[in-house]
Each structure stands twice: as structure tokens, then as C-alpha cells.
């Protein structure tokens, strides 16, 4: 027999046999996948950022399908895709997407280099978590920003950077997807995801210090001293609560009247994205 022919026959036979084995195997060991998962995953951004709290887009898709089977998509949000993507996901799953509020990370500390003098010098790995283990850290405030930028490192969207002038991280609102990675990274729990507010306008207490007024003030000129003036001026809306010498503005209740900002003696309350028309001249 022609050797070329022989080779073709033998190889053909091997190929056929292998194909059979593969066919049988693929049938026998097929993993049943809910096809909805793939369809949901298709509409996701595929950034695999983990911002939703799941290890990647396909895991999130799976979680959405499971949640849909459970009856509600409440609490499932792709921070990158936002509402449009969730609407699509809901459409695929035949559900109504929960109305998601656009949120943004807010660094609740205004202990700038100027306002909060360094009382010690940290020498070690430039990591907030490491500095946190030394106790109070470089400044006199046990609650304030440590300034090593663990949040900056945690952000996968380049939305946080350190401002060298203040020594504090700053959030780029356009880039922030409210994925919450920075919130988890901050050992002092300073960063909070807050609703962006109408036109991005919002009022925030930029302080996290639960120290008594005098202690907080001594450590930082911009600290909330728990004087309660803001609570008083907000008697109409009751949006501000005071706990452990720290005021907190409930974004749901806040009507953006800015009275608290005026009332605050230390300037701990800040307004974001209001038109530049200072109601009162600030010092």
C-alpha cells in the first residue's frame, strides 16, 4: 500500500476515535449552566472590578440570577454600569430593577496638614494599616486620616489621589463608581459612600472624630467638636444627629439649606458642588 495513503488512513482512524471520545466526554461530563447567566454577563461592563462585591462580572451575573430566582434584585448594583445596565439585567431576568441612588465616596476628614499638626513621625511601610498599628499615628487624632493612601492604592478607577498640600485623599467624582473598595481599605472607616445628591449637591460633616470637643479641637482645628449648633439650626428637618461628640447629616433628610454650614464654628460641615456664591463671607 502507498505509505502516504497508509498514513492518512491511520491518522484518520486516530482522529475519528479521539473525536468519538471527546464527543462522549462532552456529553457525559457537560456542566449545566443557566443560560441566563451568560446573557446577563454579556450586558455587564466586563471590567471585573469587583465593585459590586463579587469576584468579577460573571460571579455578579450568577448572583443576579440567583437573586432574581429569590424574587428581587434589591441591593444588586453594578457600580460601573449604573442604572442603565441594571435595567438591562432586570429586563433579561424579567424583573424590575431597584431604583439605585448614585453614590460617591466621601472622605470624612478635613485634618489638613495645617489644621492638624503632626505630633509624631511615622517610620515604616507607607501604609495606613501599618501606621494604624502604632496607635494614634502621626497626628493627635485617633479617628482622622492617616495619609498613607491605602484608599488610593485600593481604587481601581484612579478616582482617588493624595493632595500633597493637605495630606488628604481627594475623590474625583466623575471617576468614582462607588464600588466601596476604598471604604474597605481605610483602617479608620473614614470613607463613606453617600448619595451624590441633586446636581451633585450635598452636605457632609468632614470629620470622623468621636473624641470630646476639647480633645478633638486640640488635635485638629477643623474637627467636629460636638457642640450641637448644627443640630439646633436643623430643627425643621431633623437631618443632623449628634452621637459621641460627632454630628452626622442624614442625606435622606437633608434639604441642602446650608444653615448648618454657617452654624458650624470649626468649619467641619462642608457643602459640595453648590454654585460659587458664598452666603456669608468665610474666614
Amino acid at each position: 500500500m502507498n505509505p502516504i495513503l497508509l498514513a492518512i488512513v491511520i491518522l484518520g482512524a486516530i482522529a475519528l476515535a479521539s473525536a468519538l471520545v471527546l464527543y462522549v466526554a462532552s456529553r457525559r461530563f457537560a456542566v449545566k449552566v443557566d443560560e441566563r447567566i451568560d446573557r446577563v454577563a454579556e450586558v455587564l461592563p466586563q471590567a471585573n472590578c469587583g465593585g459590586c462585591g463579587f469576584p468579577g462580572c460573571s460571579a455578579f451575573a450568577e448572583a443576579c440570577v440567583k437573586a432574581a430566582d429569590g424574587g428581587s434584585l434589591e441591593g444588586r448594583l453594578c457600580p460601573v454600569g449604573g442604572q442603565p445596565v441594571m435595567d438591562k439585567v432586570a429586563g433579561i431576568l424579567g424583573m424590575q430593577a431597584g431604583a439605585a441612588v448614585a453614590r460617591v465616596a466621601v472622605v470624612r476628614c478635613n485634618g489638613t496638614c495645617e489644621a492638624r499638626p503632626r505630633v509624631a513621625e511615622f517610620d515604616g511601610v507607607q501604609s495606613c494599616r501599618v501606621q494604624q498599628m502604632t496607635g494614634r499615628g502621626e497626628t493627635g487624632c485617633v479617628y482622622g486620616c492617616l495619609g498613607c493612601g491605602d484608599c488610593v492604592a485600593a481604587c481601581r478607577f484612579g478616582a482617588i489621589r493624595m493632595n500633597p498640600a493637605t495630606g488628604l485623599p481627594e475623590v474625583d467624582e466623575d471617576k468614582c463608581t462607588a464600588c466601596g473598595a476604598c471604604v474597605k481599605a481605610c483602617p479608620r472607616g473614614i470613607i463613606e459612600l453617600r448619595p451624590k445628591g441633586p446636581k451633585g449637591r450635598r452636605m457632609v460633616v468632614l470629620c470622623n472624630s468621636k473624641d470630646k470637643g476639647a480633645v478633638a479641637r486640640k488635635a485638629c482645628a477643623n474637627a467636629c467638636i460636638g457642640c450641637g449648633k448644627c443640630v439646633k439650626v436643623c430643627d425643621k428637618f431633623v437631618a443632623i444627629t449628634l452621637e459621641n461628640s460627632l454630628a452626622y447629616i442624614d442625606p435622606e433628610k437633608c434639604k441642602l439649606c446650608r444653615k448648618c454650614e454657617e452654624a458650624c464654628p470649626t468649619g467641619a460641615i462642608h457643602s459640595f458642588n453648590f454654585p460659587v456664591k458664598p452666603i456669608k463671607k468665610e474666614e
Binding site: 515604616g124 511601610v125 501604609s127 494599616r129 501599618v130 498599628m133
Partner: peptide
């Protein structure tokens, strides 16, 4: 190298 700084973070 600040080995123990890193390891403490890891350990905790």
C-alpha cells in the same frame, strides 16, 4: 526590608 510591618498586616 520592613518584613514584619508587612507580615503584621497579613497576620491580622
Amino acid at each position: 526590608r520592613p518584613l514584619l510591618d508587612h507580615m503584621r498586616v497579613g497576620k491580622s
